[in-house]
Design a binder for these strands. Structure first.
Length: 356
DNA sequence: AATCCGGGGAT
DNA sequence: ATCCCAGGATT
């Protein structure tokens, strides 16, 4: 006999949950996996278009596994957390090579794959294979913290353990997939982060947070993130009809994306014209001409604020001092994945007028 | 245990 | 501005 919470949740799911998504009820583990990776820390509304694009481009895991990496990253461009994309490719290749194209069928095997943690493994195992594993995502944590009135922070080791145990106890082991889907929908539709719909909530009578007016305070998060600022000066160096770009490979933001010639500082430079020794160092005695300096663009990341400025430079000879950078014809540029701050610049009409 | 990894939407 | 999103990997 399951707790009343589970009964009421499933009742709500049957009678009132109208939330519809393309992967709901899906049984193909490939499609479930793809949707779950895309949706990690990503809103359904934001991930939806990417899911459709990926399914259209790669209907099977075999096709994804053999696709050129560049093409996959171009599809992922703009979605963020690019390690997910790298792991997506690696996992597709592992499943095809080591598992003969058949997606692993148990939670433990699934969790071994790259980019798959406790949440995603539980989601795939329950949705595709009916294994009784409880998902714990942001929705589930919030619902349980409020329903039970728990003030243990969700972003601690003990908190994660506690919420996983609670979720497991509440799970309907007869229909784990339906239950997991239901509690996440419930968190997204009723027990929302802001302005939850307590007035129409079927759990209201037993909700500890509602009883004690703690709905707004729960769940508790312990850590606050520290941010740092970085200044990126991008030199768009044109030689004939080509530009220098490189792939970002350091352990840093935007790994596997591309960029123009970068000069980075941790404080803004006083004047692009006077105080930037970078260009002179780069060109030495070679001549160059600066044709345009853009406004300052900004991009807010989780832990960083990026200030970006774009300096368009033309030269009549190749720049030999540029290591790692390669010359790409301007017509080929759109094949490469760039960070949003660069695409924002490229998409502005004034920028295009300078470059093309 | 702490930190990092994006981009977008709501408030 | 701040929070949060169908989290996971690294140190």
């Amino acid at each position: 006999m399951k707790p009343t919470f589970t009964e009421k949740l499933l009742e709500w799911n049957n009678a009132q949950n109208t939330r519809s998504m393309p992967w709901k009820g899906e049984k193909d583990p490939y499609k479930i996996w793809l949707s779950e990776i895309i949706l990690q820390q990503t809103r359904v509304e934001q991930g939806l278009a990417y899911y459709e694009k990926f399914i259209a481009a790669f209907p099977t895991i075999q096709q994804l596994a053999k696709a050129p990496e560049k093409k996959v990253f171009k599809l992922w461009e703009g979605l963020g957390y690019y390690t997910r994309c790298r792991n997506l490719i690696a996992t597709a290749q592992i499943v095809v090579k080591d598992h003969k194209g058949k997606f692993p069928r148990t939670y433990d095997q699934i969790k071994e794959l790259k980019g798959i943690g406790p949440y995603t493994a539980a989601a795939i195992a329950s949705f595709a294979f009916n294994e009784p594993r409880a998902v714990v995502d942001g929705n589930v944590q919030r619902v349980m913290a409020r329903y039970f009135g728990i003030s243990t922070p969700i972003d601690t080791t003990s908190g994660k353990k506690l919420y996983q145990e609670l979720a497991t106890a509440l799970l309907d082991t007869e229909q784990p997939g339906i239950y997991n889907q239901a509690i996440m929908d419930f968190g997204a539709v009723i027990c929302k982060p802001q302005n939850p719909l307590c007035s129409v909530c079927p759990q209201q009578a037993d909700c500890e947070a509602f009883k004690h007016d703690l709905v707004k305070q729960l769940p508790v998060k312990e850590k606050s993130l520290k941010k740092k600022e970085r200044w990126f000066y991008y030199f768009i160096i044109q030689y004939q009809s080509k530009f220098y770009i490189r792939e970002r490979t350091d352990k840093d933001i935007w790994q596997s994306l591309h960029e123009f010639v970068l000069y980075e500082t941790d404080t803004p430079v006083q004047s692009i014209f006077q105080d930037l020794p970078f260009l002179k160092t780069l060109f030495g005695k070679q001549s160059y001409s600066v044709s345009h300096i853009s406004k300052v663009y900004h991009q807010q990341l989780t832990h960083q604020l990026i200030h970006g400025q774009f300096i368009t430079v033309t030269t009549v000879k190749p720049v030999t001092a540029l290591k790692d950078y390669v010359l790409i014809d301007k017509k080929q540029l759109k094949q490469y994945a760039f960070p949003r701050i660069i695409n924002t610049f490229l998409e502005e009409k004034s920028s295009l007028a300078q470059l093309f």
